[in-house]
Structures are given as C-alpha cells and as structure tokens.
Computed example of a mutant assay.
Amino acid sequence: MESRFLGIPQLVETPATAVVVDVMRAFTVAAWAFARGAERIVLAESLDQALALKARNPGWVALKDGTPAAGFDAVNSPAMLRTVDLSGRTVVQKTTAGTVGALAVKDAELVLCASFVVAEATARLLRERGCESVTYVVTGEEGRAEEDLACAEYIALRAGGDEVEAAGFLRRAGESRAAAELAEGVRLGVHPDDVALCLEVDRFPFAMVAALEGSLMVLKVAEK
C-alpha cells in the first residue's frame, strides 16, 4: 500500500483514497459525537453556512472552534461533548483545519476522517477495501502539525499490516505545538481533559466515512 502525506496546500489533484487527519481536535470530536449518538455530521464550509444550516434545521447541533457564539450549540472540545446526548441528531461542524481538509478532497472515491481514537478501525477499513494508494491529509499547520503527521504515519503502518506500538506516535503528538497550546490555554474553547482525550488510541471501534450528499459533505460511521 503506497502512502503519501500532504498538507492541504499540497493537494493539487484529487486522490482516489484520502484519510483526513485532525487529532486536536476536529476528528476526535467527531468520533465522540458519534459515540454520543449522532446520526451524521455535516462538514460546513464556513461559519455562515453552519449558521444557515442550523437556521433551516433547528433540531441540528452546530459546533465550532473557539469560544461559544450566538447560534452555535457547542464548541470543538471532546471533553465538553462527552456528556451531551446527541441521539439521532445531525451535527454541523466547522473547524479551522479538519473540515477544510475533508472538503478539499470531497471528490475522492473514498474519504475517511481520522484521529487516534479511531486509528485501528480506519486502518482496518483501508485493508478491507484493498486500497493500493492512500493520501493522508495532514490538516494542521499546512501539513506540518506533528500530532496529525504522527497519527497519519501510525495509521499507514497499521493499514499496511505492520505490527507497531502506538506509544512513540502518541508521544510525538503529546509533545506537539497543538498539545502545548491546548494545555496552556492559548486556544480558546478548551477543557483541561481535551489533550488526554485526543491521545487515546482506539477508544472507538468504528471508522468515519465522508461523502457528498447533494451539495453537502456528510460524515457518517462506516457501515460494517
């Protein structure tokens, strides 16, 4: 299985298979949303679109990066979401990097969104689909985010069938700039448990697949 690791600005052509990685925090939050019962997650192109979708669908749950804002129900924090009942709900998510990365590859044949909490399930799906070439989209810091690259490399090794320990990859992520900024309160809308929750490997047994539904990019739990 051939693996490429690219930042969003480096995506000059549409890959056949893309794994979009955002560890801190978009796709850790997405996994928690599904674990809390969400039916699907609409990946919004902008805050305005997220608010417009929420306005047309009052039962939807809108979340964003940073501090709470009018019209939004939640922020992009796994710890803050872990006690919310989302049973049967549609979530609208707009973040700085993760949702942008997924939308950048929306025309790919297969788009998976991933973080450490769904790493093995993501790798297993890639193996089951027999993917020959996979582009890992390292969303943070224009492709330089160490936590996203570490997670992408770990998933790539597992997808290729390598027996590899997660500890070293988690250590890299824990020492990343993003982890420091979350821990130090540089980023807003943060819970003290966010970093630890983002560094849990294989917390959830499902992969997450994104695909176009009409004009919307929609993320769902992969069917078994």
Rank of each mutant, 00 (worst) to 15 (best):
residue 172 R to Q: 13
residue 82 R to I: 06
residue 23 V to M: 10
residue 105 V to L: 07
residue 129 R to C: 03
residue 4 R to A: 13
residue 136 Y to W: 12
residue 91 V to D: 02
residue 178 A to D: 12
residue 108 A to H: 10
residue 40 R to F: 00
residue 35 A to Y: 05
residue 136 Y to N: 11
residue 128 E to T: 05
residue 34 F to G: 05
residue 141 E to T: 14
residue 201 V to Q: 08
residue 35 A to I: 00
residue 198 C to V: 08
residue 200 E to A: 11
residue 35 A to P: 00
residue 78 P to Y: 12
residue 67 T to I: 01
residue 9 P to M: 10
residue 150 A to R: 11
residue 20 V to K: 03
residue 69 A to I: 06
residue 5 F to R: 10
residue 177 R to N: 04
residue 109 E to R: 15
residue 29 V to E: 05
residue 119 A to G: 11
residue 69 A to E: 15
residue 118 V to Y: 05
residue 118 V to N: 15
residue 123 A to Y: 02
residue 212 L to V: 01
residue 17 T to W: 05
residue 111 V to Y: 04
residue 194 D to C: 06
residue 49 Q to M: 12
residue 89 R to V: 03
residue 210 A to G: 09
residue 155 I to Y: 07
residue 26 A to G: 09
residue 115 S to W: 04
residue 27 F to P: 06
residue 58 P to G: 12
residue 99 T to V: 06
residue 178 A to T: 11
residue 96 T to F: 02
residue 97 A to P: 00
residue 83 T to D: 15
residue 44 A to W: 09
residue 23 V to Y: 04
residue 75 V to A: 03
residue 120 E to W: 01
residue 187 R to I: 09
residue 38 A to D: 09
residue 138 V to Q: 03
residue 47 L to K: 14
residue 195 V to A: 12
residue 210 A to I: 11
residue 199 L to H: 07
residue 76 N to D: 11
residue 210 A to L: 09
residue 78 P to N: 13
residue 74 A to H: 15
residue 118 V to T: 15
residue 123 A to E: 08
residue 183 A to E: 14
residue 61 V to S: 01
residue 195 V to P: 03
residue 14 T to Y: 01
residue 208 M to K: 06
residue 123 A to L: 04
residue 177 R to P: 00
residue 133 S to M: 03
residue 127 R to L: 04
residue 157 L to H: 13
residue 127 R to M: 13
residue 122 T to W: 02
residue 72 F to P: 11
residue 132 E to N: 05
residue 93 Q to F: 08
residue 205 P to S: 04
residue 1 M to T: 13
residue 37 G to I: 07
residue 72 F to M: 12
residue 64 K to Y: 01
residue 181 E to Q: 15
residue 132 E to G: 10
residue 22 D to I: 09
residue 189 G to N: 12
residue 28 T to H: 09
residue 93 Q to L: 15
residue 149 L to R: 15
residue 219 L to I: 12
residue 216 L to V: 01
residue 134 V to R: 02
residue 155 I to A: 07
residue 17 T to A: 14
residue 186 V to M: 10
residue 52 A to T: 13
